[in-house]
Design a protein around this nucleic acid. Sequence first.
DNA 1: CGGGTTCTTGAAGTGGATCAAAATCAGTGG
DNA 2: CCACTGATTTTGATCCACTTCAAGAACCCG
Lengths: 253, 253
Amino acid sequence: MTDVNNTQTVSQFPCDNCLRSGRCLGSVVVKAGADHQRASEVTVVQLQRGQPLFRTGDAANAVYVVQSGALKARRTSYEGDEEILAFRLPGDAIGLDALGQRMQNTEAVALCSTRVCRVPLEALHRELRSSPEVSEMLFDDVGREFERLHEHLQTERRPAQARIAAFLLAQLKRRQRLFGAQIDRFTLPMTRVDLGRYLALATETVSRMFTRLQQDGVISCDGNAVQVLKATALEAMAGAGAEERAPALAKAA
Amino acid sequence: MTDVNNTQTVSQFPCDNCLRSGRCLGSVVVKAGADHQRASEVTVVQLQRGQPLFRTGDAANAVYVVQSGALKARRTSYEGDEEILAFRLPGDAIGLDALGQRMQNTEAVALCSTRVCRVPLEALHRELRSSPEVSEMLFDDVGREFERLHEHLQTERRPAQARIAAFLLAQLKRRQRLFGAQIDRFTLPMTRVDLGRYLALATETVSRMFTRLQQDGVISCDGNAVQVLKATALEAMAGAGAEERAPALAKAA
DNA sequence: CGGGTTCTTGAAGTGGATCAAAATCAGTGG
DNA sequence: CCACTGATTTTGATCCACTTCAAGAACCCG
């Protein structure tokens, strides 16, 4: 099956190959439907790097949950260039911001090969009335997204170094939650440019901050592969901003 | 009736004295309840200037709708000072961001004498299942709030002048929608300090921008009473930022 | 191996923060 | 009605974090 956008609809059993099976909005809707002997209209969409899940202005007739891969939620600024509002990782809901809207006013683009679960609004509305689990899960996701936006707003008001530190920490914790392990290395799915557009920093500044974090021995990284060496130092920077930098700065002559 | 916080619960018929009667989340919940012969648990709360509707950490067991007056939604930044996430005017919902949460992670404080409609989450959940109007209205409010946050995020990435212009325009349009008339003057319920904390600008910068807007003849204002003289100029500034300022700048020697 | 992105590094310019201080305003009580 | 106190606002001068501009360097892919 292929839809207008050349996106692939993969399976009729959306949760079959999903890491988060049973713990996402999609799955509770599927389950609620099944309880009433309804065929699920929830489908899986496969995207390639750079491919949009939807564009600004598209009819907002579904919400989505990321199964694997990563996407960015973007907008176009007044000056005409890209602004990134969020990165979406497995388990994240997409499109909640269009709940009351007719149209999408953001654009969701895959950062790499990505699999997404599509939940039609119609099904969501219907199961919302039949199952308290659905409304609970929806409220959870909505609340989490508000919380993330509030945090992000706060982050953007802090100095560059703190923004990067906060971002890396968030990524780290996100992966740890996702894999349930104490990992310390991961690969960022987004470019420095994307990161700048998410954190409201010039690309050059992002780059400089990465360099600095490496010099200070807080992280080590090769391209987008990052290893966090001193999580506590990151936390300190994310919290405390630029008041005081790490002690390791006696090196220039 | 008086509750723990010294807030006054005023009436058993919450919509009686409300300008927005019938066009808000509270009223559809009341209506849905009434349809099932249920006594409404929706109540009205009266607040004085400076009085909190709820504090960070309070149990999140209700959402609210402003009937009259104004509030600010605040948080404490890492540095310990106030950050303002939103101003709430009549018709606005408060507390949607805590939908999936147990606790409030913001604080809502009245900016002046204010009347708020309290909708217990329990009632909301219940009527959500009985009435599609409720879920529709809720989704509307949630979507609008996401949209506002996205806009705000974009606004904060723009130069100071554009932020102030965008803010004033938003206020103007808000009042026009509220009163259904083409008004051009209104009184801001918040101080310059509050405004700075909302727009992520130093108070001094806010003040300077107001001065400049007056010098350029775009607005005229006496304290918090603002009159918009050239709405189109405001729009241009909100859109175009500081690339080019109004022509009237040949005055310094 | 060429040609495009993406990333890094350096030097210079600037918007807004910060510091400092005066001016205005809002109560409050004599 | 006015003097007094504290909060809010305004204005000026200085400073700095980040942007912008400019150029390499590294990477990636056909």
